[in-house]
Each structure stands twice: as C-alpha cells, then as structure tokens.
Amino acid sequence: MDNEKRKGQLRTMFSKVVDPLGYKFSPDEELVDFLLEQEVNIEKEKGSPFCPCQGLTGEREHDMKLVCPCIPFHREHYDAMRRCWCGLYVHKDVKDPDSLPQISLKEFLEAKK
C-alpha cells in the first residue's frame, strides 16, 4: 500500500479515537503530514505506528503505550500541554499550535505537586 493511502487511513481511524477525548489533528497541516508520513514508515518497519518523538525500549508494556494516538496513556500530561508530545493532536480549542510549548513529564509532575 502506498504511503499516501495509509496516511489517509490512519487519519480517518485516529480522528475517531481522539475526538471523544477532546482532541483534533493539529491545524498545522505541514506538521501533520510529516508526522503521519513518519508513522507510516515506522509502521512498515516495526509493525505499529509508534509516536515519532518518543523512544521505544523493546518492552511490550512500555512500547504499546506509545502507539498513536497515545493520548489515553498520557492524558493528564498532554491535557496540561493542550497537545500531545509530537504535536500531531491538539485540544479542540487550539488555533495556534506553535504557541504551545513542550513541557517535559518531569516539569509537569513538579508543577502538579
């Protein structure tokens, strides 16, 4: 299957998953296209469309929490950033995704205390 077709399929499937969670695809179309392209390549290589911005360890329990959309497993952290780590998804009310910084998990947990 060519990459463009698979990107379209992932987009359709994943939008149904993130919608009830209050997220949408980023309005930054160029970024979305780039990230989906990475995911399609990662899926071809590793069998699943893992997050292009987080590292796999080879331990199934760890890695399965990084299959896109990984929002359910990092909900509080991503809700605080109003985007997911790689920026493929943002909260539905976000119009300017470039204004959202990446907040590390450590910073998020420290701020929560």
Partner: peptide, 28 residues
C-alpha cells in the same frame, strides 16, 4: 541513552538536550 534519560528522571521523550550539566527535554 536509556540509562542517561532515567538518571535525569526523564521518559524517553525527544529531543533530550544537555547543555553542560543542564537538561532540557523537548523543543524549548
């Protein structure tokens, strides 16, 4: 790399940037 990330109490979220002894996780 995994051990270094763990030593800095970080998940393996990238980019992981070390500037001398300071660590910044994420594009900032």
């Amino acid at each position: 790399i995994r051990e270094d990330c763990l030593a800095h109490k970080s998940e393996m979220s990238f980019p992981f940037v070390k500037i001398d002894d300071d660590v910044v996780v994420g594009y900032n």
